[in-house]
Amino acid sequence: MRILLVEDDIQTALLIESGLARSHTIVHVACGAEAIASARSGEFDVAILDRMLPDIDGLAVLDAWRSLDIRIPVLMLTALGTVADRVSGLEGGADDYLVKPFAMDELLARIAALNRRSIRDDPPTHYRVGDLSLDLLPRRVKRGGRDVHLQPREFDLLYQLMRNPGQAVTRKMFLASVWGIHFDPNTNIVDSHISRLRAKLRHGGSDPIETLQGVGYRLRVDA
């Protein structure tokens, strides 16, 4: 996909570019004014926007885009990591918020999730991947036509995986979307819950969830 990267630090920009270049096309601009102008072309699928730019605040760029009716999904990148900063970023209209320093895998996973979100204006209530199906209303999961009884949090985890089939979902993304927490607990609670979810889904069949070492999990599309 085509990504607009707004970042004033050249070294950071180069590193992000080289990290993303394998799977995406990157256009890099270094200031807010340029960012506002570039996005008008409408050729980008996702924007990565640094919060602190030399000319204007990243939030102001976001504001300008939204008032110009540029509906590009925005991942805000920032060195400001307090709760208040994150809240102001999300309230300012960012679709996601990633605090520097971050792992490249985290950035990749979040960009993929963002793009998916932007494609659907009206999120579906029914998902089907391979022989797995998930209904949000009522909350029900089936594998190969057979009901699988999941705990509420196991259901939420699977929902995140099924929204992003074949894509990595990181532990941080699970923590934020399933438990609403934005810090990393020292105990690996995601792994323990996933292992229970796995056991219930497998139940005699193949394992539909793939572990990405040091990153997170991915739902096999061919499951």
């Binding site: 509420p152 949090r153 438990w179 105990t187 690996n188 609670i189 792994d191 323990s192 292992s195 229970r196």
Partner: peptide, 14 residues
């Protein structure tokens, strides 16, 4: 209660 639900499996696994 929510935190217990969150930590239960990990503590059990430990």
């Amino acid at each position: 209660r929510r935190v217990c639900e969150m930590y239960g499996p990990a503590i059990e696994d430990g």
